[in-house]
């Protein structure tokens, strides 16, 4: 496969995933802003924390001065100048798809093309604070449809592997980031972990990674922060946990290596990161400090992305 093609597939996978994650982040922001607890003292503005989770707090504040429902919709959903807005993600995903149409099935291409046309033709003009939930649902439906089209029509070849490596790597990044931001917000430094918590706040954290239902199934217990962390970091059954997403990156890079008959450094790194998570205990992670742990993890995840680009010659 052409290196340029693999790069486009990888980024297409990342941006589709990112669009979906942004929709979840905004949905959670919306929910939290509707709750009385959000106005409690000691808890920062929920929209600002959404912007942090979406990795665009600085950009939003520079442009709009403050984070609220309107500016979050405007900046995180609609703004083309924000390279990580839903608008930009859908556009970049579609542009990458267009550049490698021959590597996609027509179902996948038409899904992304339709999504872009619907966004550009309708949502871009009509989105406001009254229909924002319908919009976020629509984004999630479209990305789900894309994954379904991919799962149902695509050859399990190198192209499939690159799209999914991108998707899972993005998901890893997103889960780690949300955990870090939320723990930071919900458990200020002076508060011991395991102290008093707000059930609704933690429920929304779980919701932001579609894990509220899963939590109850796995723990059959009230929501507790260390269990939330355990679920999202170490539970292999959980499709957005770090250990699961990395196991997939590791497996897919293994598939590519096998096709090429050669081992790559990125596969070694992914395998190492996965094994460490596989054998880790949540107590040890707390010992390190969750924030320090996630911070180091995000840096390694970035390094993994760079290694992949390097190994497969994404930058020509």
């Amino acid at each position: 496969m052409l290196s340029r093609t693999s790069a486009s597939l990888y980024w297409m996978g990342r941006y589709v995933e990112r669009a979906e994650n942004l929709a979840r982040i905004l949905e959670v922001g919306y929910r939290m802003s509707q709750m009385p607890v959000a106005k409690n003292e000691g808890i920062r503005n929920e929209w600002a924390s959404s912007a942090v989770a979406a990795a665009c707090e600085t950009g939003l504040l520079d442009k709009h001065g403050e984070a609220n429902l309107n500016t979050a919709i405007s900046y995180i959903a609609l703004d083309e100048d924000n390279p990580s807005s839903i608008h930009s993600c859908l556009k970049i995903a579609r542009t990458n798809a267009r550049a490698v149409r021959t590597a996609l099935t027509s179902e996948m291409w038409e899904c992304l093309n339709d999504t872009w046309m619907e966004f550009n033709g309708q949502w871009l003009k009509s989105l406001n604070k009254h229909n924002v939930l319908a919009f976020l649902d629509w984004v999630k439906t479209r990305t789900t449809l894309f994954r379904g089209a991919m799962s149902g029509t695509m050859l399990r070849d190198e192209a499939f592997a690159f799209i999914n490596v991108g998707g899972f790597l993005e998901r890893t990044d997103n889960t780690a980031r949300i955990l870090d931001v939320k723990f930071h917000v919900l458990l200020p430094q002076d508060q011991r972990i395991g102290g008093s918590i707000d059930y609704y706040q933690w429920a929304t954290v779980l919701r932001s990674v579609s894990a509220l239902g899963s939590y109850h199934w796995v723990y059959r217990d009230a929501i507790q922060p260390w269990k939330v962390a355990e679920l999202l970091i170490l539970k292999k059954e959980m499709p957005r946990s770090l250990v699961y997403t990395l196991s997939q990156v590791d497996r897919l890079l293994g598939d590519i290596s096998q096709t090429h008959g050669q081992r790559y450094d990125c596969q070694r790194l992914a395998g190492k990161m996965f094994s460490e998570l596989d054998y880790a205990k949540i107590e040890d992670i707390y010992q390190t400090g969750l924030h320090e742990y996630l911070d180091a993890f995000l840096a390694r995840n970035n390094a993994l992305g760079a290694e992949i680009s390097e190994n497969f010659h994404f930058y020509l």
Partner: peptide, 30 residues
Amino acid sequence: TFLADKMGVELVEGQDLFVKDNAVYMRTTH
């Protein structure tokens, strides 16, 4: 894209090709 797809051949751009030892090569992942 249509013709490359229907023929089942790679669609390349100039940056994907290079010349070496009097032959033309494309840059692939392997």
